[in-house]
Computed example of a mutant assay.
Amino acid sequence: MSEMIQPFAAWCAAALEAVGVGIISLIALLGLVRAGYGLFKRQPSEAVFHALRQRLGRGILLGLEFLIAADIIHTVAVELTFESIGVLAAIVLIRTFLSFTLEVELSGRWPWQNHEERKSQ
């Protein structure tokens, strides 16, 4: 049974990786197009820059979630060894740190804080 699941899991992991990379690339491209359009329409460059940065950050966050899911599927269903679990733990830790720091950078609050907590600080 395991021989049948491994190829499917490997395919799912590869598909999720492609989706993650595609999301990041597509949102980056669309963000650049919208920024170019904003500059062409003579919008303030600071506002265009801020909007582009927000879009890119959100795209990276969403893409990272898909990449983490792909790594988990690959490790658990395809290559389950102590070494691969250690590598997965390091990758998830690094990507989680990146996600948290991007969230703080974009929203000005930690992901677990709600809007009321932020207003009271």
Score class of each variant (00 low, 15 high):
residue 2 S to L: 14
residue 3 E to M: 14
residue 4 M to R: 15
residue 5 I to C: 01
residue 5 I to Y: 01
residue 5 I to D: 00
residue 6 Q to I: 15
residue 6 Q to A: 15
residue 6 Q to L: 12
residue 8 F to R: 02
residue 8 F to W: 06
residue 11 W to Q: 14
residue 11 W to L: 15
residue 17 E to P: 00
residue 20 G to N: 01
residue 22 G to A: 12
residue 22 G to E: 00
residue 23 I to H: 00
residue 23 I to T: 06
residue 24 I to M: 12
residue 25 S to I: 14
residue 27 I to C: 01
residue 31 G to L: 05
residue 32 L to Q: 09
residue 32 L to F: 12
residue 33 V to E: 06
residue 35 A to T: 05
residue 36 G to P: 00
residue 36 G to M: 03
residue 37 Y to K: 15
residue 38 G to W: 04
residue 38 G to Q: 03
residue 39 L to P: 02
residue 41 K to R: 10
residue 43 Q to E: 11
residue 43 Q to M: 14
residue 44 P to R: 08
residue 46 E to F: 07
residue 46 E to V: 14
residue 47 A to W: 08
residue 48 V to N: 04
residue 48 V to D: 01
residue 49 F to R: 08
residue 50 H to Q: 10
residue 51 A to N: 12
residue 51 A to H: 11
residue 53 R to D: 06
residue 53 R to E: 07
residue 53 R to F: 12
residue 55 R to V: 08
residue 57 G to I: 12
residue 58 R to K: 10
residue 58 R to N: 06
residue 58 R to T: 06
residue 58 R to E: 02
residue 59 G to F: 07
residue 59 G to E: 01
residue 59 G to N: 03
residue 59 G to T: 02
residue 60 I to W: 02
residue 61 L to S: 06
residue 62 L to V: 14
residue 64 L to R: 02
residue 64 L to A: 12
residue 64 L to T: 05
residue 64 L to V: 11
residue 66 F to D: 06
residue 66 F to A: 13
residue 67 L to P: 00
residue 68 I to D: 03
residue 69 A to Y: 05
residue 70 A to P: 00
residue 71 D to N: 05
residue 72 I to S: 02
residue 73 I to C: 02
residue 73 I to R: 00
residue 74 H to P: 00
residue 74 H to E: 07
residue 75 T to M: 03
residue 75 T to W: 03
residue 76 V to S: 11
residue 77 A to G: 04
residue 78 V to G: 03
residue 79 E to C: 14
residue 83 E to D: 10
residue 84 S to Q: 06
residue 84 S to V: 04
residue 85 I to R: 14
residue 85 I to Y: 13
residue 86 G to T: 07
residue 88 L to I: 10
residue 89 A to R: 10
residue 89 A to Q: 03
residue 89 A to G: 13
residue 91 I to V: 15
residue 91 I to Q: 08
residue 92 V to Y: 01
residue 93 L to R: 07
residue 93 L to P: 02
residue 94 I to C: 10
residue 95 R to V: 08
residue 97 F to L: 08
residue 98 L to F: 10
residue 99 S to M: 07
residue 99 S to Q: 04
residue 100 F to L: 15
residue 101 T to C: 10
residue 101 T to R: 09
residue 104 V to L: 13
residue 104 V to N: 04
residue 111 P to M: 12
residue 112 W to F: 13
residue 113 Q to A: 15
residue 114 N to H: 08
residue 114 N to D: 11
residue 115 H to Q: 14
residue 116 E to S: 10
residue 116 E to G: 05
residue 117 E to H: 08
residue 120 S to F: 07
residue 120 S to Q: 06
residue 120 S to V: 10
residue 121 Q to A: 13
residue 121 Q to Y: 02
